[in-house]
Computed example of a mutant assay.
Amino acid sequence: MSSDVRGAETSGVESDAAARAHAARERTLGGVYAFTAYLLWGFLPLYFLVLVPTGPWEIVAWRIVLSLAFCAILLAVTRTWKNLRAILRNGRLVWWTVLAGALIYVNWQVFLVGTLTEHVIETSLGYFINPLVTVLLGVLVLRERVTVTQWVALGIAASAVVVIVIGYGSFPWIALALAFSFGFYGLVKKQIGPSVDAVSGLTLESLWLTPIAIVQLVIVGMTTGLTMGQVSVGHTVLLLCAGVVTATPLLFFAAGARRTSLTVIGLMQFVAPVLQFITGAWILGEPMPLERWIGFGLVWLALIVLTVNSLRGARRARAAAASDVASIT
């Protein structure tokens, strides 16, 4: 074999290794973005509780309108209007953003109703279940590989829901609506991929929802009355910040979802419900009867199983990458 051929083969192997290393860095960065998003989401119940007496329908409407305004400012500052125009010329991407907007609207509205009706613990249950829903969607829709251990974790989580329904005597519709709406939202973001950047995506999602938000504001104004500017200066400032508070974690989430697998996104999600559970159980003093503790305990066991399995998989992947680099050098 000539030296030129050997050199070309070596160059090809090195290029392949560099591509894998870049992909690994992108996945790691995606995990960091996702973790940041979930950390911020964990504190949202406290923020929305401070906005009382503003109700859930008014808050969601302002979140939509103000998120659109915030994203428009970001587009202007970063001079990325061309990205938005390119997306609008692609009918397939436009419909994906419409679906994403519908899913995030359901998630926002259910979350606010739960938070402001003293069901913060149940909202945390929904986000505890969400990683399992995300893994399930990754397997069934994206054909991501799943291990026996992950199936065991999914089975434990299903048992937890059954325990809560039977033992607690009520169907956890808030929890399941949150888990599945955000699980499908993550799936849509994964399907969109890098074709839609985080700011453009959220801009379009907010844009499609703006007519709904305007209708909600009109209805609230005609019934209970709008609270914007009617309570205090501090309350008004906090309500005006709803756009930034809403958009920031969603932008982190979108950036993370484009870079890493649904399985990793799902495993990162435990951060938010832990903080929400602490808020509901210890700060707000919501009831936690034995049946709920058993149900939550099963969910936490499932998450531990998933986490251990994920860590083992990551360790094997790092070892394989190190072996590839060693073989080149």
Rank of each mutant, 00 (worst) to 15 (best):
W293M: 13
A153K: 12
A247E: 01
S2K: 07
F35E: 05
R6M: 06
E9C: 01
S181M: 13
F35N: 11
W208F: 07
V5N: 00
L154W: 04
D16V: 01
F171M: 14
L267E: 00
F182G: 06
P53V: 15
S206A: 13
F128W: 04
L132F: 04
V199I: 14
A17C: 01
M228P: 02
R6C: 05
G186H: 07
G126T: 01
G12R: 04
M288D: 00
G186R: 05
A100I: 07
L226V: 05
V94R: 15
A175S: 13
G234S: 09
F48A: 11
V165R: 08
V148R: 10
V5K: 01
A254Y: 02
A242F: 03
G285Q: 02
V110T: 13
L66D: 09
V245G: 00
E118K: 09
A314F: 14
R143H: 09
M288C: 04
A24C: 02
L142R: 06
V141N: 03
F35I: 04
V13M: 02
Q109Y: 13
S67D: 10
R292F: 04
V113Q: 08
M268E: 05
P53Q: 15
G201Y: 10
L140N: 01
G101Y: 08
M222D: 05
A100Q: 12
A177Q: 12
L116Q: 10
P131Q: 03
Y185C: 09
L137V: 09
A272F: 01
L204F: 03
V94L: 13
G186C: 11
R25L: 09
E58G: 12
A179C: 11
W81E: 13
A34M: 04
L84V: 14
G114N: 08
W173M: 14
R27N: 12
T224L: 11
S11P: 00
F182P: 05
L202K: 03
A86H: 12
G114V: 11
V245E: 02
N90E: 13
V325M: 14
E122H: 05
E58S: 13
V106E: 04
L125G: 00
P172V: 11
V152E: 09
P273R: 00
G114C: 10
F43H: 08
A34L: 02
L207M: 11
P211S: 04
R318E: 12
A8F: 02
I214N: 11
V244E: 01
K190C: 03
L116T: 10
A23W: 07
R6Q: 04
R292D: 13
S261W: 00
F70P: 07
Q276S: 02
M222F: 07
A272H: 01
G193W: 07
G101N: 05
A157P: 09
L40N: 01
V120A: 00
V110E: 02
T147F: 06
K189D: 05
V237C: 14
L217V: 04
G229M: 09
V110K: 08
P131L: 08
F43D: 06
A72N: 14
E58H: 11
S310D: 10
E291T: 07
W62C: 15
S232V: 07
S11V: 01
R259W: 04
A34H: 01
P249E: 01
A17T: 00
G91E: 13
D197S: 10
P131F: 07
F171A: 10
